[in-house]
């Protein structure tokens, strides 16, 4: 099952206390025909469910919707572990898994869980090596074990596989120039959050340009990198200046504008409200898709 070119989905808090609500939200997205459900990944946060475990459980409880971490914490999830879990889940779910990945923030929390403390620059390089390893694990065509002599990861003859059933996209959570360059060079997607863009659409455009430049330098086409956007909140109450607040009509207009004016290939709505999720799926997503198809 390949993800459509334009994606609408959700970003659900993996709250351990509200685990059943989390599953309700996932199933509402699946039932409502949204494309993707994603979860943040903070393994050091005891109030959250383990994202890898939740993704596998959610895959079992859904039929159509794609699933991804938004974004997986590489420092605490070694790349071959991540690659095998991702490929396994892709196989089990019939090709419904995508891999959101990031260099990891919160160095103290990562160190407290036994992970290593890296500078931001080192984190980018570790991610570059990590993505290489992930792609090698998935590559079962090449013969022989995987040999890695990196600065951050080493392996001598590591086993390959399993092989995913579809081309899992590697989407990078990136904001800073080096991470954006890495996204353009190696990524299949970019996963920023609206609330972290200091100047809104201007920042989005500037970051997009950096991804384009890096993609071009690596001999890739810009459309090889899917440009996503996480939007926090969203409300069907009175219209306001916030993105995605107002009646469904306003959402549709804003999403179409984001697509046409700002090159947004997909929006993930960060909400833990069931009614909002259901209305997003029922009243917004079909209208946006219809207009895009027209």
């Amino acid at each position: 099952m390949t993800l459509p070119d334009y994606v609408l989905g959700t970003f659900v808090t993996p709250s351990a206390r509200d685990a059943r609500q989390v599953l309700d939200l996932v199933q509402a997205a699946d039932r409502g025909g949204l494309d993707l459900v994603t979860f943040q990944d903070h393994p050091y946060q005891p109030a959250f469910l383990d994202t890898s475990t939740l993704l596998a459980f959610a895959a079992a409880r859904t039929e159509r919707v794609h699933l991804a971490a938004n974004v997986a914490n590489l420092p605490l999830r070694p790349p071959a572990v991540l690659a095998r879990a991702a490929a396994s889940l892709d196989i089990l779910s019939g090709g419904r898994f995508e891999l959101g990945i990031g260099a990891g923030g919160f160095p103290d929390a990562i160190a407290a869980m036994g992970g290593r403390r890296l500078t931001p620059g080192q984190g980018v390089e570790a991610l570059r090596e990590g993505i290489g390893i992930i792609r090698q694990v998935w590559d079962t065509e090449t013969r022989g074990g995987i040999r890695v002599e990196g600065t951050y990861y080493r392996a001598a003859g590591m086993k390959r596989g399993p092989r995913p059933v579809h081309d899992i996209g590697i989407w990078v959570g990136a904001y800073k120039p080096r991470m954006l360059a890495l996204t353009g060079e190696l990524g299949d997607g970019w996963l920023p959050s609206w609330s972290y863009l200091p100047d809104g659409w201007a920042s989005y455009a500037e970051m997009n340009a950096r991804i384009d430049d890096a993609a071009a330098a690596a001999g890739r086409r810009p459309e090889q990198v899917r440009r996503m956007l996480n939007v926090m909140g969203g409300s069907f109450g009175p219209s306001s200046d916030e993105l995605l607040s107002g009646p469904p009509r306003v959402w549709v207009e804003q999403l179409l504008e984001a697509r046409h004016e700002h090159r947004v290939d997909g929006v993930l709505l960060a909400t833990d409200d069931l009614a909002t999720t259901e209305r997003f799926a029922a009243e917004v997503a079909p209208a946006v898709r219809e207009q895009l198809a027209a």
Binding site: D50, F57, P78, V148, Y153, M158
Partner: peptide, 26 residues
């Protein structure tokens, strides 16, 4: 014992957290 340069071995604390999460879900 986790070696950060080993790409194939999970961190024990993450494994333990996963087990608690599984117990919450099922």
């Amino acid at each position: 014992e986790p070696v950060p340069t080993d790409p194939a071995t999970p961190y024990p604390q993450v494994v333990a957290h996963a087990a608690r999460s599984a117990d919450t879900l099922a």
